[in-house]
Design a protein around this nucleic acid. Structure first.
Lengths: 97, 97
DNA sequence: TAAATATATGAACAATTATTCATATATTTA
DNA sequence: TAAATATATGAATAATTGTTCATATATTTA
């Protein structure tokens, strides 16, 4: 195992912190297999438009989701397979407790 | 992919929240390949005995670490391979950004 | 163009949490 | 037994953060 710098450990904590909020995890969950627009996400995760929008911004800033605009709507999806992998591993861990 | 209940998603957020603090991630990091007593951990992560002890309690409560007492000392180690796996995956993700 | 729809965002507030400080407890050693 | 060492823990404080509310912006439709 390579030696990890303090900076890298701080970055890692920042990464996991993003997954450490139930609204954000719920958003990631509904984006696992398809892109969705904001209002669909709101319905599915049962949170206000504002709360979802704020959290999407956090996810966007940390590059865990990407988006594209189409007409009135903004469609969000997971950035890459890594996000899914981390989510799945968390899921596995819970199964084994 | 199985359907995840809201409860499970909340549990998942709780799990990742534990990894989402730099002191705790640093502790996990130094425990990756060997058990250590509290004062060794303090030295390695460069944090106060109290701060480390408080965070070890959090890690203990969420079952990410286990411990054994020997004389004056308490030796901590990672609970199981899952903790290491999650840590490593976070590490990989950072490498690819 | 006016109204409707979808989304984003700033400010305020409440809640959570990490650290420090002081101290308690337990074990070992002189 | 007294002192030293290792660890745990409660209270207080400071900082971070998630939500709500109000509102701004942009696009579409009537």
């Amino acid at each position: 195992m390579e030696i990890l710098s303090e900076d890298k450990l701080i970055d890692m904590a920042e990464l996991f912190k993003i997954f450490g909020d139930s609204t954000r995890v719920k958003i990631i969950n509904v984006l696992l297999d398809k892109e969705l627009c904001v209002c669909e996400i709101c319905d599915l995760v049962n949170a206000s438009q504002s709360a979802v929008s704020h959290q999407l911004r956090v996810l966007k800033q940390s590059k865990l989701v990407k988006y594209r605009k189409e007409g009135n709507c903004t469609y969000y999806s997971l950035s890459d397979d890594h996000v899914k992998k981390i989510f799945m591993l968390g899921c596995e861990h819970l199964d084994e407790m």
